[in-house]
Amino acid sequence: MIRFLLIALAVVLALPSALPLAAQDKLPPAPYAYRQLADPAQEAKAHALMQTLRCLQCQGQSITDSDAPIAGDMRHQVRVRIEAGVEPEAIRAQLIESYGDYVSYAPVVNALTWPLFAIPVLLVLVIGVVLRRRLTTRSA
């Protein structure tokens, strides 16, 4: 059930625009939308970054998983900037500046997201304390 909804969704969102049914643009994809960087190390960097950037129109996918033109354009942007020597995190920061945290799949710790990290830490602590107490009780 679940998964086919996902796929249905992917189809619906793969349309060129989330706005009321837009026609397809006729332009070929941006140069680096479907082309890799010549330097494998740079491409690997770009790919790792792209996997964590969210497609803005097909909202449930990363830009590496989408055929939407805007995802292709964003891949182009990322590859061009990586090629120019910009650090991946700087590119992410710039996109976050434009779009907010939404565009990045890697949440950062801030006033709004700290529980996302605090709760797992708390879980580990509680589990650790309980286990420790059990173990020491046994040896006592």
Partner: peptide, 29 residues
């Protein structure tokens, strides 16, 4: 604990929306 984390990460965008912000939680988390 894993169940808790998956639930937390899945619902967190909704919680953030309640505070008027949009966040994405994905594989890097």
């Amino acid at each position: 604990a894993i169940l808790g984390i998956v639930l937390l990460g899945t619902l967190y965008p909704l919680l953030a929306e309640a505070f008027g912000a949009q966040v994405s939680v994905g594989p890097p988390y």
